[in-house]
Every structure is written in C-alpha cells, then in structure tokens.
Design a protein around this nucleic acid. Structure first.
Length: 423
RNA sequence: GGAGAGAUGGCAGAGCGGUUUAAUGCGGCGGUCUUGAAAACCGUUGAACCUUCACGGGUUCCGGGGGUUCGAAUCCCUCUCUCUCCGCCA
C-alpha cells in the first residue's frame, strides 16, 4: 500500500508512474485527496472537542473533591452536547478512514524508474543470458514422458488422491526433490540466510500484510472452518514474522530463507502451460527474503539476482534474466527480475524464479519499521525471491540431461541425490 | 473436546472509577566517579495521528470490538488469543 502522505505530496508523480503499470489512477487519486482532506478536518475538530471534555472531566473531579457539588452538576450538564458531537464526529472519522483505506488499497505499487514501459511479456527486457540452448535429438522426450518412463512422478495417482496438479513423486523422483531442497537450503545458509521453517497455513492479517489479500483471495486455498489460508509461497509467513515490528537499524539487512510446499488454486489456467510439472497446485520452493534499509535495497536486489543466477549456473542450466515491464509486473512489486531456464524438449523458457523489491509497499501494510538511534521509525524495504521453485527446475534437468543411457544429474547435487544417473 | 486462569510499556510486574500525565524492578541510552572496567549514584527511556514556518500544543493507544459514566487500565457485554489441568493424539 502506498503511503497517504506520499500521495498527498506527490499526486502527479503517482499518476505518471502508475501509468507505466497501465493503471489509470487519476480518478482514484482525486478521490483519495478529497477524502484525506475531509478526514483531517474531522480529526482536528474531534481532537478539539475531546480536549474540552477532558478538561471539564478533570474540573468536575476537582469540584467534587472540594465539596462543590452544585457547580459540578452544572458543568456536567454542559458535557452532554459535546458527547453527542463526539459520537457523531467519531462516526464520520471512522467512515472517512475506512473509505481512504479502501481506496488506497486499490493502488498498485509504484514501478521503479528502470521498469520498461511495455505491456505484455514480449516487452520484458532480457538483461542477462547464460549457457547454450541444448540441441536435443528429435527423439528427445518432454519431462512428462521421462517421468513416466523412469517412474519418477505419477500424475494420475495424484489425481486419485487429491486432484490434477498434485503430483506424487516416487523413488528417485522423490529423492531428487529432497536433494534439491537440501542443496538450495545449504547454499542459502552459506550466503548468510537464516533458515526458517514457518507455518504453511496463515491468517487473514498475514495475507493482507504481503498483499495476497484482499485481491488475490481466489488464488489461495481457504480453510474455511478455521478461516486460514494455505500459503502460496513462503514469502507470506517469513515476511510476516516482522509484521508490527520495529527492528534495530543495525540488524539490517535481515536475511531469512525457508523451504515450504506452496499451494495455488491457479483458477483459469489451462492448455499446454499446465502440462506435467509446468503449473501445479502444490509444489516445493525455497524462498529467500530480505528486509533492508531503503538506501540499500536496490543493491540488495542485484545481490539476490546474482545469487539466484549462481544457483542456476551451478545446476548447469541455460537461463536468462528478464526485467519485467510495467504491464507484466505484479501489483506489489517496484522492480522484478524473472529468471527463466530453457527446457530443451519443450523448447521453451520456464520461469523458475522471480526476485522483487517491494520497497515500502508491504512494510506499510505490515507496519514493518526500523529505527536507528533517536530517529523516528521508518518503513523498511522488503525483498524476496525464489531460490528456487522446484518443479520447472526438475523439468529442465530431466529434459536437458536426457541421454540414451538415462538422465544425468548435475554435479552439484550428486552429493545430495546419492546417484549420478537416473536409468 | 471438558474445566479453570489470564491478556498492562523492550521484558518482568503493580494498579481494580478521578494524586496514572501507568508505580517499581530489569534492560537500553546519557552522565558523575575511575588509569580503564565493574559497582554505586544521578538523569533519561514507546508508538500513531492532528495542528504549527518553527518553538510548541492537542488527541489516541493497558489483547480486539461495543457499552455504562462528566471521567474507565480499573465496572458490564462480546470476540480473539494464551496458559494450566483432564481427555484424545504424531
């Protein structure tokens, strides 16, 4: 959520920058400014009347103590009108505040100056490329054939147990999952991230804090009996650890990571995009999260991008890094890099990581602040990235490394899998 | 699931209608003393919002919401959460 004070002082800038995200903010901003002004007028008035009442109450107490009952009673009568006014003003204030909140929540985060102007995924800017596109023989199989051939993943069995999009990993397929999770967590620890194992169900406040609620309610599984949501990413519980917290400036940056399964309803998805491991309702992911000083958050974003690139290199996967254009960015992000690996048999790029700086968009919702010395608390910047999402990594490894004799494992994870080949 | 207890400032912990503008202790910060440190002593110690060019002034916050009252941390209602015991259970 954007800060109201910022909107008040920079309304033109907000409108211009939101246009990059193809969001026409003109009308909403005008409404916000007007409601905000009205709200402040109400509050000034209310504070004034409350102040009078407080003063009178004190006097009444003193008068009673001094035995001047009659004077006290007279003063009491005066308060009736004030109390009515207070009730009325409080109602107005609450309404104005709610109104303001409702409108402000509709505004996406402001894109950073470096965000390309485009509208569709084609307009994303390729900022980095690594590795050669694998030249596989015509007989090369897509991963959903390979997983069947080597009995690694049973998609039909998942349908029986839960439904489409809930694969059952078996044998070396399951072991590969576990190996990748451990590998990613170990690498993150080496890079200074503290491992967290968070709850995978979250409450409404947490969903609001990171921006999933209220807009994306339909994307999450909702456990209605207890009013909890299954996490779509570890970002939600790990970032919400710091909701309503004021951290010491010296403790920045805070670097956390965690492995969790992730659950997404993916309502409306269909076609070949959802084939095999390409899009699932449940998948495994290791997430990295940082909380950083506003002055340093963009350096941190680059550092995180480099970190994820390093992981992909170590897995010997060809990949490219995209800077997302205004039209393709998420609601909450100020700047996002997507990392895509090339999946040789499908002959397409698959997104395996998304690294974003949210600036104060999440921290303002969460009231996550930092404080140094005698300075006033300020909103911190939050960042996160996948490091990495497993299914598409697995898809690319299986497809790109297939040979006549079986599927070769990248060297880096052999110590974790305990096998070099799947055959 | 049953029974009971509780929710107060960074933490611990008083307060149970108007000397609370929240006692006291610990912690934190500053100082005195000291070659330095410790101890001791003194001072200081939150957040949000409104208003003001500024100095300052005002309002709100004792789990959330509502009520009683001129006045609520304190009384009433309600919700949520936590703890203890019992039951069940990985």
């Amino acid at each position: 959520m954007l800060e109201i004070a910022y909107i008040r002082q920079n309304s033109e800038d907000v409108i211009t920058r939101l246009a990059v995200k193809h969001f026409d903010a003109k009308a909403v901003i005008a409404e916000i400014l007007s409601v905000d002004e009205n709200k402040r007028a109400i509050q000034t008035k209310l504070d004034d009347v409350l102040s009078q009442l407080n003063k009178a109450s004190k006097e009444i107490g003193d008068l009673y103590k001094a035995g001047k009952k009659q004077e006290a009673d007279e003063l009491k009568n005066k308060t009736t009108a004030w109390k009515q006014e207070i009730t009325s003003l409080e109602g107005d204030l609450k309404k104005a505040d709610q109104d303001l909140q409702d409108k402000a929540v509709l505004l996406p985060n402001l894109p950073n100056k470096n965000v390309p102007k485009g509208k569709t995924p084609e307009d994303n800017e390729v900022v980095f490329k690594h590795g050669d596109i694998p030249q596989l023989p015509e007989s090369a199989l897509p991963h959903w054939e390979l997983t069947k051939k080597y009995d690694l993943i049973d998609f039909e069995l998942g349908v029986k147990i839960a439904g489409a999009g809930f694969p059952v990993y078996k044998g070396k397929g399951a072991k590969l999952q576990r190996a990748l999770i451990n590998y990613f967590l170990d690498k993150a620890a080496e890079a200074g991230y503290m491992e967290i194992e968070p709850p995978i169900l979250i409450n409404k406040d947490s969903g609001f804090g990171t921006g999933q609620l209220p807009d994306k309610e339909g994307q999450m599984y909702h456990v209605t009996l207890d009013d909890l949501y299954m996490i779509p990413t570890a970002e939600v519980p790990i970032t919400n650890i710091y909701r309503d917290v004021i951290v010491d400036e010296e403790s920045l940056p805070i670097k956390n990571c965690g492995y969790t399964p992730c659950f997404r309803r993916e309502a409306g998805s269909y076609g070949k995009d959802v084939r095999g491991l390409n899009r699932l309702h449940q998948f495994d992911k290791v997430e990295i999260v940082q909380i950083q000083h506003p002055d340093k958050s963009y350096a941190t974003l680059e550092e995180m991008r480099e970190y994820v690139a390093g992981l992909l290199k170590s897995l010997e996967l060809p990949f490219r890094t995209l800077r997302l254009c205004g039209g393709d960015m998420s609601f909450a992000s100020a700047l996002t890099y997507d990392m895509e690996v090339y999946s040789g048999a499908q002959k397409r790029w698959l997104e395996v990581s998304s690294v974003s700086n949210f600036e104060t968009f999440q921290s303002n919702r969460m009231k996550l602040r930092f404080k140094g010395g005698k300075d006033k608390p300020r909103l911190a910047h939050t960042l996160n990235g996948s490091a990495l999402a497993l299914p598409r990594i697995v898809a690319a490894i299986l497809e790109n490394n297939q040979t006549e004799k079986g599927i070769r494992m990248p060297k880096a994870i052999v110590p974790y899998t305990g096998f070099e080949m799947i055959s």
